[in-house]
Design a protein around this nucleic acid. Sequence first.
DNA 1: GCTAGTACATACCTAATGGTAACTATGAAG
DNA 2: CTTCATAGTTACCATTAGGTATGTACTAGC
Lengths: 132, 132
Amino acid sequence: MLKAPEQTPLEIMEVHACPSRQVMEMLADKWKLLVFHSLRQRDVMRNGELMRALNGVSQKMLTQTLRALERDGLIFRRDYQEVPPRVEYGLTELGRSLSEPILQISDWGQSNMTAVEAAREIYDRSESEQHG
Amino acid sequence: MLKAPEQTPLEIMEVHACPSRQVMEMLADKWKLLVFHSLRQRDVMRNGELMRALNGVSQKMLTQTLRALERDGLIFRRDYQEVPPRVEYGLTELGRSLSEPILQISDWGQSNMTAVEAAREIYDRSESEQHG
DNA sequence: GCTAGTACATACCTAATGGTAACTATGAAG
DNA sequence: CTTCATAGTTACCATTAGGTATGTACTAGC
């Protein structure tokens, strides 16, 4: 039947190999960014602390997020093998280096989120004018 | 008994108002970051160009992403009201300022994604040792 | 023997995401 | 009068994400 080949060998390969794209896909995740933000300022944290810091995460999502970050070499996981369990998480060197630009985004938010909210209000108002 | 109250009225409010958290939730999106990356280097772009640049987006997702960014005041949309339609997108001043830290993340990727991939391989290997 | 406490794993189920395909408008080209 | 091109919109559907609820391991304390 010969329809468009969904592999598109060359183009997609190039794109998938692009490192900037890879970081962005890696970081395009709400909880990951917040974990960076928390771990930056507190050195090491335990599961429970992170649960409280990332207000609203479920245990499942937190574990999933931490596993992914650990796999990527961005955080370490130190298990004390005690009972009751004690496990600590912290940024690796690699993770710490990535936390710098992430901090800058956070700082940008401190300075500019009010402008964003203002823009939203304007947009929503002109939207409702057209439809309401 | 005095355990941590799970409503924590004050904390949650604070967190939701926290600008750094808001930016991160705003940017925790694969296509948004990539749109920034594309628009940074090309001044203005048309819908079709963006489709090709962000390899793999569907028209639906692209429109949705552009609308959200426009609403947030980060990009502008210039509609020439012509037939066939001609519409250009570009970063606003606000968007341009945010593109700086995003660029740094992209640069971080250029330098460090190989390290991330190496970490993944190590992790996966020790995982499969335990289970296989 | 029962309960509490920590850091999970797992099953189940619903809500949201995102892809595909079809439809829209409009003028120019043929 | 048909086709093409652009930048969409919309409906429908499959996949995925993510929440809840429950189970697990092991020791201390009652």
